[in-house]
Write a protein that binds this DNA or RNA. Structure first.
Lengths: 220, 220
DNA sequence: CGCTTATTCTATTATTCGCTTGAATAATCG
DNA sequence: CGATTATTCAAGCGAATAATAGAATAAGCG
């Protein structure tokens, strides 16, 4: 009655999506793209892939319709095709965290200091932002800040954190955030600030989580 | 500074999860398992895979820790390892629906009658259940009903729908549901009931969606 | 136009994947 | 115990995949 071949074709379509996510390189590319539109070249550099290889991975993502691209002059800018892609990425991360003990071990080694530097939660951060008792800094590269940042955040790219520390407010706590829970920038910024005697904590969330929670994002 | 090899290892862990989802056969197995615990044999039959092949796919899912198993006598029963796995499956479906036009075309061919038989939404169904104006039937195989069904539903497996129709209430509307939006049982049940002059509609959701929404599920 | 830069295409290679087949293991039953 | 049933293991094969290198395309610039 129900055509078994058609049922198979449906699952093949679902598998197109998950196949596109099935390579570490492509997950990393998607993570970067969730911070905003980027050109092949920049993505290749950030992921340490060859340009040709990055381009091929991006085309696989495009074939699964997870990303879209547009040309601007001689560069081609890729972006996530749909908000549902971020939801999907988040679901993969959540399941990996829940199920893979190995991930915890690897993350512990990579995110040095994650355990010492207690993060501040999304709700707590919102409360203190409204009360005006914290300074919020975005320590990602400046162009990612341009593409979208938490409302009220100041752009202080990681490499400028040390010099910024001199002019940082000494009475208020500094909260640093970056791409998300697997990004080391905020951890390094907090370490640098504390070394200079500034009270600093890291935010638990990045822009994706903040946006997913329906909280305000600003651009430019 | 940040060890690139460690970063890669993190993405490899995430990719373990998505790799496990990257085969149509495994997605189908997970869908079946979201209806409840099942033995290899039954899963192989339902998916038209050879037993050995199904067993291998299940072991791949187990290696990614998406499923767990227990022995009961001579059979080994597999189940989803975590609620986050259902969330993940749902995210894959949602993205596929949002992004893949081909899926819509294939689904239209498979789910014959989906367009004519307007579904009833979750909220509407709840309202009418509380008002007592509908009879809710679960048209999945009896053992899936046993593993968990919507509160207030009666088990009427698809093959018994025709005979059940004789004793069906003629004054109240019958609502049929099955595994979810890509399951044909409810559609076929509605068609069979209407042919016999009974007012019948299909529910939009299956047990997974109902449970995900935090609505009551009964077992046994 | 020719030169430079950014990206994609093509071909090649090593590896992994999905499936089949037949044998092995494990529990139950007479 | 031997027979039956359910599942897993092991080997092998063709197809798909990821990465590389080098050529090709396409836009911008002097």
């Amino acid at each position: 009655m129900a055509d078994p071949a058609a049922k198979q074709r449906i699952y093949e379509q679902f598998a197109r999506i998950s196949k596109a996510l099935a390579a570490p390189a492509r997950l990393e590319l998607l993570d970067l793209l969730s911070q905003g539109e980027r050109a092949v070249d920049g993505l290749a550099r950030a992921t340490a892939l060859s340009v040709a290889n990055a381009s091929q991975h991006l085309q696989i993502l495009a074939a699964a319709r997870l990303v879209e691209s547009r040309r601007e002059g001689q560069r081609i800018l890729y972006r996530l095709a749909d908000p549902s892609v971020e939801v999907l990425l988040h679901a993969v991360r959540t399941t990996a965290e829940a199920r893979l003990a190995e991930l915890d071990a690897v993350a512990r080694a990579y995110l040095v200091g994650r355990d010492e530097f207690e993060p501040i939660s999304r709700t707590e951060l919102r409360r203190r932002l409204q009360a005006g008792t914290v300074t919020l800094i975005d320590v990602r590269p400046a162009d990612e800040y341009q593409h979208g940042h938490l409302a009220g955040a100041v752009s202080v790219p990681l490499e400028e954190v040390a010099s910024w520390a001199a002019s940082a407010p000494r009475r208020r706590t500094v909260v640093a955030y970056c791409r998300g829970p697997y990004c080391v920038y905020a951890l390094q910024a907090v370490a640098a600030l504390r070394k200079r005697g500034i009270s600093a904590v890291r935010a638990e969330d990045g822009v994706s989580e903040w946006r997913a929670a329906g909280l305000p994002i600003e651009a430019g």
